[in-house]
Amino acid sequence: MTKIFKHVQSTVVPLPIENIDTDQIIPARFLKATTREGFGNNLFRDWRYDNQENPKDFVLNHPTYSGKVLVAGKNFGCGSSREHAAWAIVDFGFDVVVSSFFADIFKGNALNNGLLPVQVSDAFLAKIFEAVFADPLTQVDVDLENQVISLASTGEQESFEINAYKKACLINGYDDIDYILSHKAEIEAFEAR
């Protein structure tokens, strides 16, 4: 059973950096846990804290910015397949990541954890950054059913793509394994070929 997702309206955390890899999202040394919980503490660990555990000048340490929507530069989530990256983002409290381009494996991992990756145009991404840096209380509205993201202040909006099956999974909390196991006879027939 995946987390159910339908609609989010929230302020955002802006991270205007390209090619954010999963080693930055959750460094490898924190992958030794055998459960899914608690990774949020180490989200962007080496950008948040220095070697002596002192907070650095980084947006997650900035009281001005908070919210359930993380907005990042293009090619977000590249690199390692570690699902811990999606777990860390969810555990920290985000429901949505917005970027102009996502790495494939990260996108899949996010969808499997009720974290919605919203891919927008470069122009719309720039608009969100501009609005948020002008007013940190800017809200975005993400409507999964209609596949639309909008800037609450100006009403400017853009539609986004999502695989119809994954959309149904998110809205209804379906599980991939149940879906595949409904094909048990076909799996056995395939093996007998």
């Binding site: 397949s81 570690r82 699902e83 811990h84 999606a86 494939d104 494996i105 899949g108 991992n109 499997n112 954890n113 695989n163 991939d176 394994i177 879906y179 595949i180 196991l181 094909h183 799996i187």
Partner: peptide
């Protein structure tokens, strides 16, 4: 394919992977 842990669980349980053709 490299896969995430939810998919590792999926393949363990079903010997199959749900995947769109790239």
């Amino acid at each position: 394919f490299g896969i995430g842990t939810s998919q590792v669980e999926q393949v363990l349980a079903t010997q199959c992977l749900l995947q769109s053709r790239p």
